[in-house]
C-alpha cells in the first residue's frame, strides 16, 4: 500500500530530519525564540490541575516507551510473571489517563481563560490537539489491545530498529488496527511539528542545574581575552 509506505517509511524519515535540523538551527541561531512559554503568571489554578498531571503522566509514559525500545528483553523478563505484567499495564494506563485528564484541563483552560487565550498562538492549539490525540489513541490502545507492554517489544522495537538501520520493515506495522496506526502516525507528525513549536522546551530541560555552581559571575574582560572572535559579517 502506497499510504503505508508514505506514513511508515517516508514520514518518519522526514519528521526525524526536520526535528533534528530545525532544533539545532533554532537552538543556535534563534535562541531567543526557545522558551517553554509558561503562562502561570496569567492563570494558576487550572494550570495546577492541568500542568502537573499532564507533565508527570506523559513523561513517565514516554520513559516507559523508551524502556521498551532500549530494553525489550528486560521488559519481557519483567512481564514473565503475570502479576508484574498486570501491574505495569495498569500503571501505564493510569498514567496515560492522568495525562489525558491533565490535557483536557489544559485545553479547557486555554479556551476559557481570557488571559491565556490572549497569549495562545495557532501553533499552541495545534500542538495541544496533537498531544491530546496522541494520549487518547494511546489510552485506547492500552484498553482495546491489551498487553502492549509485551507486544510492543515484538512489533515496534524491531520496526523502529529497522528504520534506524535504513531497512524499513513496514510489514510489522501494516497489519495493526487503525487506532494504533493513528497513534504512530500522530507521533511522527508531532516529531515534525516539535521544533517549530513550544515543544522544543523538552530538549532544554535544565538537568545541568543539579551540578552547576549556585552563583554565576562573568568577567567581560576575561571573556574577551579568551574569545577568538571571528572577523565575519553578520552573526
Amino acid at each position: 500500500m502506497i499510504w503505508d509506505t508514505i506514513f511508515f517509511v517516508i514520514l518518519p524519515y522526514i519528521s526525524l530530519a526536520v526535528a533534528v535540523c530545525v532544533t539545532v538551527y533554532r537552538s543556535i541561531y534563534r535562541p531567543f525564540s526557545v522558551s517553554s512559554m509558561s503562562s502561570q503568571l496569567l492563570e494558576r489554578k487550572k494550570l495546577y490541575w492541568g500542568s502537573i498531571s499532564f507533565h508527570y503522566g506523559i513523561v513517565l509514559v514516554l520513559l516507559g516507551h523508551l524502556a521498551a525500545l532500549l530494553l525489550p528483553k528486560g521488559l519481557l523478563l519483567w512481564n514473565a510473571v503475570p502479576v508484574r505484567m498486570y501491574l505495569l499495564e495498569l500503571t501505564g494506563l493510569a498514567l496515560g489517563i492522568w495525562a489525558l485528564v491533565g490535557l483536557g484541563v489544559l485545553l479547557w483552560r486555554r479556551l476559557s481563560e481570557k488571559r491565556v487565550r490572549a497569549v495562545t498562538t495557532p501553533m499552541d492549539l495545534a500542538v495541544l490537539v496533537l498531544v491530546i490525540l496522541s494520549a487518547l489513541t494511546g489510552v485506547l490502545t492500552a484498553t482495546l489491545y491489551r498487553f502492549g507492554t509485551s507486544w510492543f517489544t515484538v512489533v515496534f522495537t524491531p520496526y523502529l530498529a529497522s528504520l534506524f538501520t535504513l531497512q524499513p520493515n513496514i510489514g510489522l506495522v501494516t497489519p495493526l488496527p487503525w487506532v494504533i496506526k493513528l497513534h504512530v502516525i500522530n507521533f511522527f507528525i508531532l516529531l515534525a511539528v516539535f521544533p517549530f513549536s513550544r515543544l522544543i522546551h523538552i530538549v532544554t530541560y535544565p538537568a545541568g542545574y543539579l551540578i552547576r555552581p549556585w552563583q554565576i559571575v562573568l568577567w567581560n574582560r576575561k571573556a574577551r581575552a579568551a574569545a577568538r572572535l571571528p572577523q565575519t559579517k553578520g552573526g
Binding site: R44, Y48, S51, L210
Partner: peptide, 17 residues
C-alpha cells in the same frame, strides 16, 4: 536543586498577575 527541577511544571511560590 532536585525539588527545583521537579517543580518546573508548576511552581506554587510564583506570584500571579
Amino acid at each position: 536543586r532536585l525539588s527545583g527541577l521537579l517543580k518546573l511544571f508548576y511552581n506554587p511560590s510564583l506570584p500571579e498577575l
